[in-house]
Amino acid sequence: MLSVTELSKYISPDFQLSPITFNQVPGENLALIGVSGSGKSTLLQLIAGWQQPDTGSITLFSERIKGPQEQLVPGHPGLAILEQSSHLPHYYYIRDLFQYANVWETSLARNLFSLCRIEHLMNRKHHEISGGEQQRIALALLLITSPRWLLLDEPFSHLDLTNKKILQQVLADVTRKLNITCLLCSHNPDDIFAWAHRLLVLENGNLVQVGSPEAIYHSPQNSYVAGLLGDFYPLSPELAQVFFPEKFALNTANCWMVRPEHLLFQVESTHHAVKATILQVTLAGRDYKVDLEVMEQQLSFYTQTNSLKAGTKGYLLATNGYCFPDC
């Protein structure tokens, strides 16, 4: 397994990666998630052996991964890291890149090209392929070194929806057929919800929550984690008191918030419901987004029907909510 123990790194007076400890077992899809600047890329580079940690250790199957101060060529043969940008050499045909790098038998290499969906790109140059194709070529160049662990640094951040879906399918095929374990970092929950078995949430260089995507989404540690994994709306104290009177009485000093799926719009008044007016209804892909005004606050929810119209008056009910000491 991959084992990270008390790993830390001082970057500047404004940022440092606090001691972090976690394990990953073979076959586990593990995702690092956090806003830009939370320490995701730094942690990946430490694990890959590209940066020297200040404290702690990284081992892969009980073999310690050395930092760049301990060896001439940074990195570890059992680990490969795919960065946000492919950094492919210019002016080369793609076939030449693999001719120089390939140590596999021809048939195995061709199977890899097919797996990464790049076999049709061999006679093109760097400027003749898209960003998504460059990412898949860079991935194949890493895989041809036969790594056991693959680190992915925001691999979908620069891709359009079509190329993102292709790369997601390629990664699924690669991990299954080549028996490679992946550790992926992202700031977009849509990239990791269906993929990850477990999440590590980073905030300002600190590991603040670990768990399954479902568990963290429904029980976030704080407002940062809640906002990282989906939409939420802070509630005014007056509105929170109406929605959750019993709980609010016990936590008057805390901040309350709800997710869109916690809001229920209805025509008739019920207990704990508040008068609301629909401001607008807009298409949001598969669903419609409904914006409302309630007690001088604007909230939104999503519905699959477009029967609701702007100006409609009714009542809003909150079926659930979160209470945090911070907003």
Rank of each mutant, 00 (worst) to 15 (best):
Val174Thr: 08
Asn206Asp: 14
Cys116Trp: 01
Ser57Val: 15
Leu88Gly: 04
Lys247Glu: 13
Gln84Pro: 05
Asn123Glu: 15
His76Arg: 03
Leu43Tyr: 07
Thr305Asn: 07
Tyr302Lys: 04
Leu207Asp: 09
Val201Asn: 05
Ile20His: 00
Gln51Ser: 12
Ile94Asp: 01
Glu203Gln: 15
Arg198Asn: 08
Ile118Asn: 02
Leu200Cys: 12
His87Ala: 14
Gly227His: 09
Ser62Met: 08
Thr252Trp: 01
Pro189Arg: 07
Leu60Pro: 03
Gly321His: 02
Glu119Gln: 14
His218Phe: 13
Met257Val: 10
Val174Ser: 04
Leu159Cys: 09
Glu28Pro: 09
Leu139Ile: 12
Leu46Met: 11
Thr21Val: 09
His272Phe: 11
Ile144Lys: 05
Phe324Thr: 06
Val242Cys: 11
Gln135Asp: 05
Leu72Glu: 14
Leu82His: 02
Lys40Ser: 10
Tyr100Lys: 07
His218Lys: 15
Glu203Asn: 15
Ser212Lys: 14
Leu239Val: 05
Gln134Cys: 12
Asn29Ile: 12
Glu261Ala: 14
Val274Tyr: 04
Lys275Gln: 14
Lys289Arg: 15
Met257Phe: 08
Ala194Gln: 14
Leu178Glu: 03
Tyr224Asn: 06
Tyr224Phe: 15
Asn123Ile: 02
Leu97Ile: 12
Gln298Asn: 12
Thr312Ala: 08
Leu150Ile: 13
Ile20Glu: 03
Leu178Lys: 05
Glu70Ala: 14
Gly321Leu: 04
Gln280Arg: 14
Ala273Ser: 15
Asn222Asp: 14
Ala215Gly: 09
Val274Gly: 05
Ala101Trp: 01
Thr55Val: 14
Thr42Trp: 07
Phe98Thr: 02
Ala101Arg: 06
Lys177Met: 14
Glu203Val: 04
Gln84His: 08
Asn251Gln: 13
Leu263Ser: 03
Phe113Ser: 01
Pro53Asp: 11
Val201Tyr: 07
Tyr224Thr: 03
Arg95Leu: 05
Thr42Gln: 11
Lys247His: 12
Lys66Asn: 10
Lys275Ile: 03
Gly67Val: 11
Gly131Ser: 04
Pro68Ala: 08
Thr42Gly: 08
Ser12Glu: 05
Trp256Ala: 00
Phe61Lys: 15
Gly321Asp: 04
Asp326Arg: 10
Ile81Arg: 02
Leu112Ala: 00
Gly56Arg: 10
Glu214Gly: 13
Asp153Phe: 06
Gly67Trp: 06
Lys40Leu: 10
Leu299Thr: 01
Lys275Asn: 12
Ile65Cys: 06
Glu63Phe: 07
Met1Tyr: 07
Ile192Trp: 03
Cys323Asn: 13
Val290Lys: 02
Thr319Val: 01
Leu199Trp: 11
